[in-house]
């Protein structure tokens, strides 16, 4: 898909995100907006997904022969839900139910709601890399050459389990695994460097045996290029440090941890939507 088309979808997804969190006055817009370009690139261009003859995606938990994505930092669910709906896993209209009574769109994604596209429950940080390792290993054992992606937060790197997974993947030569860290430098209580300094994550992962790449996470062309390039090594997993700005696309949210888990009010929503022109061909839900 053309970069410009992907950017248009990303704009529509950003509109969805701010409208979803505004509607229920809760949720996590900051990280969602920062990772939008990445997840749009993944689902609309980079991943090989199972489709019917008409190009409609088919969700199958076994995921044989198709690429899979796991969301480890589950709190950016508004982004995940919007991308899944826009890609056709469930009706876009269902985004209006986010966090509401009996919705399948909980604050954190869960398979218990049987929402197509969700492969694991997440919300407790630090767990996604291990699950992605299991899925990548299963694909290799099955002789399935498709790829596994996982997105983690940078604050999440403070969890010990992450480093158990980081040890495992190179040992088992999981070249079919790409792990991406949203390096926005923020966590709920402030800058990551002040809350608990992760120091040089790239050097850490290199020391654990990973290929380490950097990616401009809010530059669609760079996102597409780096994600595609990460598929090439057969034996060594790739870790991408994705430099993003929390709240990207809305000036008053950008670069601040204050919008990690806070929704805009009516006035702020109007300002945000003005900055996010509605995409041609895609309507607000």
């Amino acid at each position: 898909m053309e970069i410009q088309q992907l950017e248009q979808i990303a704009t529509q997804v950003r509109r969805d995100i701010v409208r979803m969190v505004h509607a229920v006055n809760s949720g996590h817009p900051g990280g969602s907006l920062g990772c939008t370009d990445f997840l749009v690139a993944l689902y609309f261009d980079v991943m090989r997904l199972k489709e019917d003859g008409q190009g409609t995606v088919i969700f199958d938990m076994d995921a044989k022969g198709e690429d899979v994505f796991f969301l480890s930092n589950g709190h950016i669910s508004p982004l995940f839900y919007s991308v899944l709906a826009r890609r056709g896993y469930f009706p876009v209209s269902e985004l209006a139910t986010f966090r509401k009574l009996d919705s399948r769109l909980q604050g954190h994604p869960t398979t218990a709601e049987h929402l197509p596209g969700v492969r694991i429950a997440s919300g407790s940080l630090g767990q996604g890399l291990s699950v992605a390792c299991g899925a990548a290993l299963a694909k290799r054992l099955n002789g399935d050459d498709s790829h596994v992606y996982v997105l983690m937060g940078d604050g999440e790197q403070q969890e010990g389990q992450v480093w158990e997974g980081a040890t495992f993947a190179p040992h088992h030569k999981l070249g079919n695994l790409t792990a991406v860290i949203d390096l926005n430098g923020q966590q709920i209580d402030g800058p990551t460097s002040l809350v608990m300094n992760n120091r040089d994550l790239g050097e850490k992962y290199k020391a654990f045996g990973w290929n380490v790449e950097h990616m401009e996470g809010n530059n669609m062309a760079d996102v597409v290029a780096k994600l595609k390039a990460s598929r090439k090594d057969a034996d060594v997993p790739t870790l991408i440090l994705m430099h993003t700005e929390m709240g990207y696309g809305i000036d008053y949210m950008m670069g601040s941890h204050k919008w990690h888990g806070v929704a805009p009010n009516d006035e702020q929503l109007a300002v945000a939507l003005n900055q996010l022109p509605q995409t041609v061909g895609q309507a607000d839900y």
Partner: peptide, 26 residues
């Protein structure tokens, strides 16, 4: 040998990896 996976002393990863394997039908 192809049906035994070693995780090392890392029980959290043990269960996470097992879940990932099972999610794809293992």
């Amino acid at each position: 040998p192809k049906q035994h996976i070693e995780i090392g002393i890392a029980e959290q990863n043990l269960v996470g990896v097992a879940a990932g394997l099972a999610s794809t039908g293992k």
